[in-house]
């Protein structure tokens, strides 16, 4: 028989995982956005901005893995 507290924990974990996955999709959109912006307007700091966008995407991936394996 499943304990209510276990159910609550599972529910919380599911919320966190879903939230992290949605955020991962958003991070992907940001990478696409920066790529489009840098194609349209070419400037000195474009490479830095692309680096930040990919770094942010990696953090989002890390967040998803964290929620799945550590929570």
């Amino acid at each position: 028989m499943i304990d209510i507290s276990q159910l609550t924990q599972l529910f919380e974990k599911a919320i966190f995982i879903i939230g992290a996955i949605l955020y991962l999709f958003y991070a992907g959109v940001v990478v696409k956005q920066v790529s489009m912006l840098t194609k349209n307007v070419n400037d000195k700091f474009n490479s830095i901005l692309i680096f930040f966008s990919y770094g942010h995407l990696l953090f989002a991936v890390g967040l998803v893995l964290l929620t799945i394996f550590l929570l």
């Binding site: 992290a20 958003y26 991070a27 940001v30 307007v41 942010h56 964290l66």
Partner: peptide, 29 residues
């Protein structure tokens, strides 16, 4: 552990908030 993930999530949101505003300023020329 949940608190840690929540804080991490919050800082990611803070970063993206600042980043989006910067991109909006930087590329509207």
């Amino acid at each position: 552990m949940y608190q840690f993930v929540t804080i991490l999530f919050w800082y990611l949101i803070t970063f993206i908030y600042a980043f989006e505003h910067f991109l909006s300023w930087y590329f509207n020329v």
